[in-house]
């Protein structure tokens, strides 16, 4: 419960960071492909599948995707 509270507070703080708002004409660098959090869908799928098949942890970057035998 305390952990969830800390995380919630952190997320709210992140959303409300009191920094100077970035203006539309300042977003040229942010528009570059490498700045996206999803640059290569297939590469991300390969990574999620191979890591979840050999590690105890999985997910964290989204929802859906289903499972596999991976024995």
């Amino acid at each position: 419960m305390i952990r969830a509270l800390i995380i919630g507070v952190a997320m709210v703080a992140l959303a409300g960071c009191a920094m100077q708002p970035v203006q539309p004409w300042e977003k040229g660098m942010l528009a570059k492909k490498a700045m996206s959090f999803e640059t290569d869908k297939l590469e991300a799928k390969f990574a999620e599948h191979t890591y979840s098949s050999k590690e105890g942890a999985s997910g964290g970057a989204g929802v859906g995707g289903g499972g596999c035998g991976c024995n």
Binding site: A10, M11, A15, M19, V22, E26, F37, G60, A61, V63
Partner: peptide
């Protein structure tokens, strides 16, 4: 096996050169 997953998150532009994201699942 039946699995339900839920996610909430926020993405924030911090500066003209920095963008951050927090996801809770």
């Amino acid at each position: 096996k039946r699995v339900v997953d839920l996610m909430a998150g926020v993405t924030r532009v911090l500066t003209p050169a920095d963008i951050v994201q927090a996801l809770l699942t």
